[in-house]
Write a protein that binds this DNA or RNA. Structure first.
Ligand SMILES: [Mg+2]
Ligand SMILES: [Mg+2]
Length: 276
RNA sequence: ACAUCC
DNA sequence: GGATGT
């Protein structure tokens, strides 16, 4: 469901758009602005509000309350259908066999409110009267960074990986699909590719990966996969050897950080094809 | 258990 | 539900 941007296109829009998860979370007063922050962002979270006050308040909550409520409602319905009895009584409960209900989903912790960011320095092209960005939270991660991720259709299965600029979502590299890889091989190769490419380009963006496993393999300089080589996946093993060799023969390194998926949502390089 | 991939 | 990994 997308807010409609067509109607009343003249004389400025009257809605306010909260972006909780997007390239630059904040409150925007035009769908065009908001859309730039959410389109192409995995699991983007955003909603339109009628007034700036409502929007700012909702943004400060740190998450989309509306969708959380709907989630909880769906869960209640599901439990009801299963015949699960939810017990709201306090400590004292003499009743013997009441099936235990799952704890209701907890509200995510509100985004940490750190110092308000200075507005992106207005250029001459910025409309002077009306600020377009009403509220802007600095994201908890480094925006000047490269995000990498891998995917495979089955594990093992056809494997691919890519890297994107966190700031813009722009894809910097994309390899595959290649037959018969594992998730972990892909996550490993993605990081090495990010390092090698940046050395070649002369850039030094820190790298985000959501794979603790791959980060460890980078540290030890070895792809410790248990997958066995065969004819089908030979090209992947070729790549692995090249990657390990690169790590051995180059001292060039960059900070590699854990992308905290549970707090920040899917890494921007995600392929967005998980179930659910 | 944690982190991922389907 | 199943696989890859520490
Ligand atoms: Mg990943
Ligand atoms: Mg992913």
């Amino acid at each position: 469901m997308h807010p409609n941007s067509n109607q009343l296109s003249h004389m400025g829009t009257n809605k306010y758009y909260v972006v909780w998860k997007g390239f630059a979370p904040g409150v925007y007063d035009s769908w065009e602005e908001a859309e730039m922050q959410v389109s192409g962002y995995p699991d983007a979270s955003y909603r339109a509000f009628k007034t700036m006050e409502a929007a700012v308040e909702a943004f400060r909550e740190g998450f989309d309350k509306e969708s959380l409520i709907k989630e909880v409602a769906r869960e209640m319905e599901r439990l009801e259908k299963e015949g699960t009895v939810i017990e709201f009584d306090k400590k004292k409960s003499g009743k013997a066999d009441i099936p235990k209900a799952e704890a209701p989903a907890e509200a995510p912790a509100p985004a940490k409110t750190t110092t308000p960011i200075e507005k992106t320095t207005p250029t001459e092209t910025t409309p002077p009267v009306k600020k377009r960005v009403i509220v802007q939270q600095p994201p908890p991660y480094l925006v000047d960074s490269l995000a990498v991720d891998a995917a495979c259709a089955g594990n093992p299965g056809p494997m691919e990986y890519r890297g994107v600029l966190v700031r813009t979502g722009q894809e910097i590299f994309h390899v595959g699909p290649m037959e018969g890889g594992t998730n972990n091989i892909g996550e490993f190769l993605a990081i090495v590719h990010g390092l090698a490419l940046q050395e070649k380009q002369g850039t030094r963006l820190p790298i985000y990966s959501d794979s603790v496993n791959a980060q460890k393999w980078i540290r030890i300089g070895i792809c410790k996969t248990q997958l066995e080589e065969n004819e089908q996946n030979a090209p992947i093993f070729d790549l692995i050897r090249r990657a390990e060799s690169w790590l051995r023969t180059h001292t060039f390194r960059l900070p590699i950080y854990k992308w905290e998926t549970s707090k920040w949502g899917e890494i921007p390089a995600d392929f967005g094809r998980k179930k659910h």
